[in-house]
Lab assay of single mutants.
Amino acid sequence: MQRVNMIMAESPGLITICLLGYLLSAECTVFLDHENANKILNRPKRYNSGKLEEFVQGNLERECMEEKCSFEEAREVFENTERTTEFWKQYVDGDQCESNPCLNGGSCKDDINSYECWCPFGFEGKNCELDVTCNIKNGRCEQFCKNSADNKVVCSCTEGYRLAENQKSCEPAVPFPCGRVSVSQTSKLTRAETVFPDVDYVNSTEAETILDNITQSTQSFNDFTRVVGGEDAKPGQFPWQVVLNGKVDAFCGGSIVNEKWIVTAAHCVETGVKITVVAGEHNIEETEHTEQKRNVIRIIPHHNYNAAINKYNHDIALLELDEPLVLNSYVTPICIADKEYTNIFLKFGSGYVSGWGRVFHKGRSALVLQYLRVPLVDRATCLRSTKFTIYNNMFCAGFHEGGRDSCQGDSGGPHVTEVEGTSFLTGIISWGEECAMKGKYGIYTKVSRYVNWIKEKTKLT
C-alpha cells in the first residue's frame, strides 16, 4: 500500500490518463441519441435557420407576430419608411378606419389613436360632414345658397324668414311668412316636400332668348283662358290664391305678392273693366268669414305684352289694390325667389296649380277651390304637342294621358313649387288646347323671366 501511494504521488498524470480511459469505455446513459432527441424537440425550422439574422431580410411573422416588435424591426421587413409607417399605425392600436367614419364618399386613412378623412370636392370637416359648395344638395341650405369668396357655403332665406341657429334652416321672422300653410287642420295635408338634388348652379339658368321682337298675326285659340281631375282644397291650404270678379264672377285667378299687390295673367284683364279681388276665398257660393274683398285701382301688364300681336306672350300683369290686405292664416303671400332659384325650383319637376275653373272641358265651374299636382314636361315634348308657338318664356306641365289639367277660369292662378315646406311661385296658368285632352298640356308663363320686374313694381313704400 505504501508503494502504491508513492507511485500516485510521483505520477499524477498517469492516474488522470487511467481515469479518462475508464470513462470513455463506459456506456453513456444520461444523453439520448440524435434521433430520439429530435422526437422530443420537434420544432419547425425557421426561415433563416442556421444563418445569422443580421444578414437576412426581415420576416413579418418572425419579427412582429411571434413577439412584439419595434418600429426598427418592422422597418427591416418593409425596407421602406412609408410602408412601415402605414403598417405601424394599425399594428400599434388597430384600424381606426374600420367603422368607416368618413361621410359623403370620403376616404379614410388610419393613424395612431386617430384617423384622417380625405374629402371629395365640396366637403370638409373631420368626417367630411361639412358642405362647402352650393353645387351639392344646395349646400344643405333649406332655401338659398351662395358661395363666399373663400368658396364656403353661405345660406340665406327669402323675405319674412331668418336663418336658424344651425345656419342652414329657415324659420319665420314674421307672423305670416310667405308660402307657408298655417291653418292647423290643413298642415297635415301639406304636399310632399321637395329635397334639393345635386345641381350645376353655374349652368342652372337656361341660355334662352326671349323672342321679344317676333311679330306674329293673332292666333285663334280655343278655350285658351284655361282644375280638371283635381281635388277639393281645404280652407287655408292655398292662402296665396285669390279669385278675380268682373263682368262675371271667378273669371280668373291670381296670387298675393304682398298686402297691396296681386300677380295674374295679362290676358285676364281689360282696361276700363272694374275688377274686384277676393282673398281668403274657399267656396265661392258661401260666406265663410275668411274672405277679404278689395278693388283694383291700377293694372300693370308687362311692358312687352301686346294682345294685338299675341294674347299669351309675356302673359303676366300686376294688380294694385285700393287697401292693403290683412295677412292671416287664410290670406298669405306666395314666396318669389330670384331668377336663378325660381328656375331651379321649376326644374324640380312638379308643381301645384289651383283655381275655381271648370271641372271638365266646357263644363261647370268649381264651387270649392280645386288643386292638382302636375309634372313638368320637357321642352321637346311640349313643342311636338301643339302647332302653336311655345315661346321661351312659357313652359308645359300636365299629363300625356289627359284627364287632369287646369281649365277655363283658372287662368292667372299660381303654379307653385314647394321647397322644404315653403311654396314659391314658378308659373302662372296661361293657356292650353281644350282641357285635359290626351297628348295636350297646360301652358304656363315662366315666372323666372319676370321676377325682377315683379319685385321692382310691387315694392311697398
Rank of each mutant, 00 (worst) to 15 (best):
N258V: 02
R298M: 04
K39M: 12
Q241K: 05
R3P: 13
K247M: 12
T342F: 00
Y341C: 04
L32A: 14
R298W: 03
L318R: 00
N306I: 05
T381W: 06
G254I: 00
G421V: 03
E35D: 14
F87G: 03
I214C: 13
L23V: 14
S255H: 02
E54R: 01
P301E: 06
V202L: 13
K146F: 12
D232L: 10
I443M: 09
I210H: 11
F196V: 14
E98V: 10
R162A: 10
I214L: 09
L52E: 04
A37W: 02
W356L: 08
N138T: 06
K362M: 09
L189K: 12
D378L: 04
Q167E: 08
W453L: 00
C128Q: 03
I429G: 13
V4L: 12
R379H: 12
K234I: 15
L346V: 06
E165A: 07
L318F: 00
G58F: 02
E434C: 10
V202Y: 12
G229R: 13
E124W: 10
N151K: 12
E159C: 04
T271L: 14
S49E: 15
F144P: 00
V419L: 06
E159T: 10
I429N: 15
G246P: 05
N313V: 10
E61Y: 03
I7T: 13
T386S: 13
L19D: 02
Y305A: 02
G21R: 08
A380V: 09
K146Q: 13
S25Y: 13
V183Q: 11
G230I: 15
G349W: 05
Q241A: 15
E171L: 11
I136E: 12
I17K: 02
D131Y: 14
G254S: 01
G272P: 12
L383Q: 15
L367W: 13
G349A: 06
I454K: 01
E66Y: 04
G402R: 11
D111G: 11
R43L: 02
I299L: 05
I17Q: 02
C268P: 00
Q57C: 00
F123L: 08
G355S: 07
F424P: 01
C382V: 03
S156V: 07
Y352P: 03
D223K: 08
E434Y: 10
V153P: 11
Q57L: 03
G413D: 06
V4N: 13
C178K: 00
K89R: 12
E420V: 10
K457S: 09
T85M: 13
V374L: 05
V416F: 13
V269F: 05
E231N: 14
V416D: 00
T133W: 06
T194N: 07
T225E: 12
T461S: 14
K339P: 15
P414M: 15
E27N: 07
L327P: 04
F348H: 09
R83T: 12
D198W: 12
